[in-house]
Design a protein around this nucleic acid. Structure first.
Lengths: 244, 244
DNA sequence: TTAATTCAGAATGTGCACATTTTTCTGCCA
DNA sequence: TGGCAGAAAAATGTGCACATTCTGAATTAA
């Protein structure tokens, strides 16, 4: 028996737990619980999420290199304060990619693609009627991912997904209560209509205006720089349970 | 004096050493020393690069997250075998972005931008005349980054830089001796000429053909899947020296 | 001979013990 | 009261010691 002073090792299949920690932090950011400037200390995170410090550490490192957080050596990792200029640049890149996407979809799309587009717009309409703002917000983002996926380019989908989450981060950080203004279903419906009609110029123009509108909306206010208590930020979403 | 059995801690400023290890591996890949399927074992890497296992570990994790390497849990990290389809998809995304880039540059560019473009093309011409293939290869990549930078969008530059390195990886992995074929300076010179003439349609068309040509060239052969000895791969570039 | 099994060696994964650095606190003095 | 120097506490960074898992060669059975 010797000296069993060491904690029992976690069982196999804990690669998923890394992702759970990662997702927990990301979800907290997306829900607007972590305001810009907040410090995510390793001991505090480990305590709140009920994981070892190394696990929190690894998740933080990953989030830093993916651009979600900023790390200062020997100081800690912080929630970045995105300026409106950076957000605008991200939307600019999105414009380049997404206008190309709709142009391509106009040129080549089959019945199944048309079906999925119409179904999505319908879902958005339902969520809008039911005033289900959380779902509408999610659907709004998924719409842009859907367009990329319909192009059949895996690299494009992955890239655009990253761009999307990064651009919505600014939204979520500073005005989580304004989700309903993010995008009514009308813009998306019009874009789909243009695609189905194979009107290349109109579709591209609509997408351009749509993205420009989102930037303009966000440039209105400035995020209030005030930190927050981690315990409250992770209330209810700290559920790091290993999958069955 | 107690028990000084522990190695002395590395001095301050070793955040740069992480990058050195990261760069060493990346350089080995770009030089085509690491063939697809090669396993990058942690002990072997640490031995070859003369660093601790944790450092090699961290660098490997970062490279995996960035898509340079592939990790199999409890198995190790490997050099990925990019299929021609994936490479083609990457070039497809690049086409979307870069045609937009040249279009924008046609619309708005000042004298300093024109100066930098002409200077770059001239450098390429010199390297081509001197038969300096290594330099020409480097310049060929930088040309595309330069175009992005001239747009003044930091996010775009960063994104395109990643795409560029990933697409050149396939090149380097399988045919490092064919660097000269990558891109003669003629294509780039023509593109610059069209941009300076503000001929939008022609510039976009030339960029499109340029990228399509690169894909077609690479789709000719298949990379030979054979591993390699790490000692030889890192010969000469294992120089992990801390900066002064 | 071939296929399955066992077992030793190596490699990966992770908690922990420090060293180093930063931040906070306390006592002192102008 | 306000500022400052030094010490204490906390946080970050890193090497190391295992536990766990994988590999592969030798052994055995069919």
């Amino acid at each position: 028996m010797a000296h069993p002073r060491r904690k029992p090792h976690p069982r196999k299949g804990d690669v998923a737990m890394d992702k759970a920690v990662y997702d927990a932090i990301r979800r907290a950011m997306l829900m607007g619980r972590l305001l810009p400037g907040t410090k995510l200390g390793e001991p505090a995170l480990a305590r709140v999420l009920k994981v070892s410090r190394e696990r929190a550490r690894k998740a933080l490192h990953r989030l830093v290199h993916e651009g979600w957080l900023e790390a200062v050596p020997n100081r800690g990792t912080f929630v970045p304060a995105l300026t409106i200029e950076e957000v605008s640049e991200i939307y600019d890149v999105r414009t380049m990619l997404e206008t190309a996407v709709v142009q391509r979809l106009c040129a080549e799309h089959g019945p199944p693609a048309a079906q999925r587009l119409k179904a999505h717009v319908n879902e958005e309409r339902i969520a809008f009627k039911n005033d289900d703002r959380g779902r509408l917000f999610g659907l709004s983002g998924e719409f842009h991912v859907l367009l990329a996926e319909l192009c059949g380019n895996e690299q494009l989908s992955k890239l655009l997904r990253g761009l999307l989450t990064r651009s919505t981060m600014h939204f979520s950080l500073a005005a989580p209560e304004r989700f309903q203004n993010c995008a009514g279903p009308h813009d998306h419906a019009d874009i789909v209509k243009a695609i189905l009609a194979r009107d290349v110029k109109k579709a591209a123009k609509l997408m351009l205006d749509h993205l420009l509108g989102l930037v303009e909306m966000q440039s209105a206010w400035q995020p209030p720089p005030s930190p927050v208590r981690l315990e409250e930020a992770f209330r209810g979403i700290a559920a790091v349970r290993r999958p069955a």
